[in-house]
């Protein structure tokens, strides 16, 4: 029984490479677009709420981010359909809602990490910067952000890994990716399709986790002044 399962999966993978590559490309595309936008948004929001005199706003945003992360992804995708459907001119089915849901999720760890990292920069260092005659803008770009960088990168890595997992559910709102073979397999009782989707999406997630770990370490090493 088990042997047959693996044989048929192996056969399917061997005969359907173009299709698998296509799903990989779709999956990567969703993750890439979503994390790129989420990084911009997340770092922007994080920097904004970490500013002077915005403590209460920061509190609300960080709490909201925390609560948002507890909402199950399947539930969020499902809620996206009527929400987007009520806005005229926006597709409620397809790649667009899939990516919007991904952005909503992926920006949360980035906002949280950016905010805490900037807040935790030692006041003494900021004071020193001010003493050297830096403007607030210079302090932000040349003191706070470089020091906060490793933590922000950790948030981005977290966001990438999360998006790979959540993007697998994108097929639910008509997006692409490895959710397609899994859903198709379950609907049609095709074990080979199910396993192909499960194996490849897991491999993709593990590879991206590993790669973003390398990028994180390399970049944060440089921001501490190690690399030339």
């Amino acid at each position: 029984m088990e042997e047959r399962i693996f044989q048929s999966t192996w056969h399917y993978i061997n005969t359907h490479w173009p299709l698998i590559l296509n799903w990989t490309a779709q999956h990567l595309q969703m993750v890439a677009i979503a994390t790129a936008i989420a990084t911009l948004l997340g770092v922007g929001v994080g920097i904004y709420i970490a500013g002077e005199g915005r403590e209460s706003l920061a509190n609300v945003v960080v709490n909201m981010a925390e609560i948002m992360l507890t909402i199950p992804s399947l539930a969020l995708y499902t809620m996206m359909i009527p929400l987007l459907g009520s806005i005229p001119g926006v597709q409620s089915i397809g790649m667009v809602p899939a990516i919007i849901a991904l952005i909503l999720y992926a920006q949360m760890p980035i906002i949280e990490n950016t905010y805490t990292a900037i807040r935790e920069v030692s006041p003494a260092i900021i004071e020193a910067g001010r003493g050297m005659g830096m403007t607030p803008r210079e302090i932000l770009y040349r003191v706070k952000l470089p020091l906060a960088f490793p933590v922000i990168m950790a948030g981005v890595r977290n966001a990438v890994v999360m998006s790979v997992g959540i993007a697998a559910l994108a097929v639910f709102v008509g997006g692409g990716g490895f959710g397609i073979p899994i859903f198709r397999g379950i609907r049609n009782l095709r074990v080979d399709l199910i396993l192909t989707g499960a194996i490849f999406s897991s491999i993709l997630a593990i590879i991206l986790d590993w790669l973003s770990g390398i990028v994180e370490r390399r970049l944060s090493w440089r921001s501490r002044g190690g690399g030339k």
Binding site: E2, V164, G165, A168, I186, L195
Partner: peptide, 19 residues
């Protein structure tokens, strides 16, 4: 454990069903 958590939940749920 960290690598395992990177695996999409959908993949795990679906991967269990054939067996």
């Amino acid at each position: 454990a960290n690598v395992g958590l990177a695996i999409p939940p959908l993949a795990l749920v679906a991967g269990v069903s054939p067996f």
